[in-house]
């Protein structure tokens, strides 16, 4: 087995065999191969739009498994662009991607009902192969590793999930019907030192506290993602694929909810500045006091400068220009 074959085996172990993706594959393959005419349309029914017939319980779990499978295929594509896997994937993997992502009842799921453009690009890649002008990121497997590791920092994170839901105007209510978290409540919490302190220290972590933690975690993710995109600047196709992997959220954030996110950021910066002395009290020992007195104002300015850079990083990451290289590839440009 050569290195890239071993890498594919390692990727498959982690993202297919050891995840729900394996179940998703077995499920879809079973449905697609079912010879019983009465069972025709099972794939289409499972992967339907959630209205008028809602999706609950076991079906939700099955769709989640399919999502994981699509994620695995997308990672194969990103891995190929990163030089981690062969630029042209092996025949078995290619055949599998084409048979699943190219299936007439699967396509509407990711291209129409819940648009996730990268899945279309992955299918295009499996069908047509790499573009001639693609610069494969040889000797840069580290980019792929960074990408995988960064993804994990937000995957299945309940705090981020609640925060993104609030951005999507979801409101959380207690069993008695009382509203306990919405986007306005989150903004107010970010303005108040006392409320922030109380929420962050609440070990029961109610929905609003989750959203608050999620706000910081998602901001951290975007900052780190910006660093990764910068490192990938020499490889536009890889950069584009990594951006599109998170495209669903980044598009939504850029188009609809950027203002709310940046408002939250301004509130926390104002909060820090207004309460700086209290949040960072003078040390008690004399040596430290001397050092602090010399630099307290400068340090406050530094803190605000750091926050300003963070804000700029967010705006930078949200630029839709990152989509363009792979859009051109799919459009034959």
């Amino acid at each position: 087995m050569n290195n890239q074959q071993r890498n594919l085996a390692s990727l498959t172990s982690e993202y297919k065999d050891n995840s729900k993706a394996a179940k998703g594959y077995t499920l879809l393959r079973g449905m697609m191969n079912d010879p019983n005419p009465a069972h025709l349309g099972k794939v289409a029914h499972l992967l339907r739009y959630h209205a008028p017939i809602g999706v609950y319980d076991e079906e939700l779990k099955q769709r989640f498994a399919v999502d994981q499978l699509i994620e695995y295929y997308n990672l194969c594509f990103v891995g190929a662009l990163a030089g981690f896997l062969p630029a042209t994937l092996d025949a078995d993997t290619t055949r599998e991607i084409k048979s699943i992502l190219g299936h007439h009842d699967v396509k509407p799921y990711y291209s129409q009902y819940y648009p996730y453009y990268l899945a279309s690009v992955t299918l295009h890649y499996a069908t047509h192969g790499p573009a001639k002008d693609w610069e494969i990121a040889r000797n840069s497997t580290g980019l792929f590793y960074n990408f995988l590791m960064l993804n994990r920092s937000i995957k299945h994170d309940k705090d981020i999930e609640v925060f993104l839901n609030l951005l999507d105007h979801v409101a959380y209510t207690a069993p008695d019907g009382k509203r306990i978290a919405d986007i306005a409540m989150l903004m107010n919490a970010l303005k108040s030192k006392e409320q922030m302190g109380a929420l962050l220290a609440d070990h029961t972590r109610p929905a609003l506290a989750k959203a608050l933690y999620g706000f910081f975690k998602f901001g951290e993710f975007l900052s780190n993602f910006k660093t990764l995109l910068d490192k990938s600047e020499s490889y536009p196709a890889l950069q584009s694929a990594m951006w599109l992997y998170h495209g669903y959220y980044l598009d939504r954030l850029g188009a609809e909810v950027k203002t709310a996110f940046l408002d939250g950021f301004k509130h926390i910066a104002d909060n820090l500045a207004a309460n700086y002395t209290e949040l960072f009290p003078e040390p008690e020992d004399e040596d430290d006091q001397e050092e602090e007195q010399l630099s307290a104002d400068e340090q406050k300015e530094n803190v605000l400068a750091i926050m300003s850079r963070m804000r700029d990083n967010i705006l930078y990451v949200l630029q839709p220009r990152y989509k363009e290289p792979l859009e051109r590839y799919c459009n034959g440009g």
Binding site: M196, G197, A201, F216, K217, G219, L272, F280, V303
Partner: peptide, 26 residues
Amino acid sequence: ARVQKLAKEVLSGWTALISPFVTYQY
């Protein structure tokens, strides 16, 4: 470690912004 300084030193990442608001509560 000097905890007040620790809170400030790590103030370079987003999640670290949390720390000054909760110093001494953990």
